[in-house]
Design a protein around this nucleic acid. Structure first.
Lengths: 159, 159
DNA sequence: AGCCATTTGTTGCATAGGCAACTATCCTTC
DNA sequence: GAAGGATAGTTGCCTATGCAACAAATGGCT
């Protein structure tokens, strides 16, 4: 058992481990302090930044599933952090916005987010972080491009 | 809605997006081709590399929850890909190993894993990938170090 | 040998998350 | 202005995942 697992050098695996550790750490913080789930936190952040928008806008901005956005909004509304008003332009949707207490929470949430990001990234230069972000973005896009049938068609080195 | 979402520059979020995209892509591949879940695939990979080990060993090596390992092993055993033999040294655990058909599948699984990794990482130099791995590792460790109470005690810049 | 803390594997429960289907509304086309 | 397809939001269902609690077995200590 001295040997290093090859799995530990498998990049998608390393990515998953790191992401889970970071996300879990942050989720734990928001849950303990305000009882917010990750989707709820993201909606709070976006509403604070963009003001009056619809669930569809939130779905596009957050890259989350529309159901996740909907459920987060419902919880936040029940807690009095978010309010819906009818959308005059489109009867299907509502306009969402933070309430006064929602804005107050947002004012605490964002500084904590930045502080946690700062601590987690401590020791990295801005240049390193920019490179890192760029690589994340490329991996993201690349993984959507890769075509399954394309891989199926060759036998990846096995005779 | 022209503005760029600040959330899109929040590193933990970018990490999560990229990781989900990559993992999802690979999971989809293994599910479509062999009906394997991610935990099942990881157990196959580790058993193929390490031979005769216990669930506890698999838990340590994979960094997964012991329940996830247990369930993956059960499924693989039912499918005849893995077999358990009693552990003479410790009556609580069993020794796990790939069956003949499990080894055959492993022989196809690992090349596909490496091929997908290669395609997803296409365009990056070895040096870039090494740096990237090192950063993932540091982010992982750093996020476990950050102490919640420590952050609670200061008010992160808010008066 | 007997007791107690620890460890391994297992089961059950509770939650999160995504997908498909549905309703209501909108928009285009005729 | 009626019909058809598209879109926003909602609900229900199904799966994945993790934790807590448990049983069986071990090892240390007296």
């Amino acid at each position: 058992m001295q040997q290093m697992a090859p799995l530990a050098r498998f990049l998608p695996y390393q990515l998953s481990i790191a992401s889970n550790a970071v996300s879990g750490r942050i989720a734990q913080e928001y849950r303990a302090r305000w009882g917010l789930s990750v989707p709820e936190w993201r909606v709070m952040a976006l509403l604070g930044d963009f003001g009056t928008i619809t669930q569809r806008d939130l779905t596009r901005l957050s890259l989350m599933d529309k159901v996740a956005v909907n459920r987060a909004c419902k919880v936040l509304e029940d807690r009095g952090l978010v309010e819906r008003t009818p959308n005059a332009q489109d009867g299907r949707s509502h306009l969402l916005d933070l309430t006064a207490s929602g804005r107050e929470m947002h004012g605490q949430i964002m500084p904590l987010a930045r502080e946690m990001e700062r601590r987690i990234c401590a020791g990295f230069s801005d240049a390193e972080l920019d490179t890192f972000r760029a690589m994340l973005d490329r991996l993201h896009r690349q993984s959507e491009i890769v075509d399954a049938d394309d891989i199926v068609s060759d036998n990846f080195g096995i005779e």
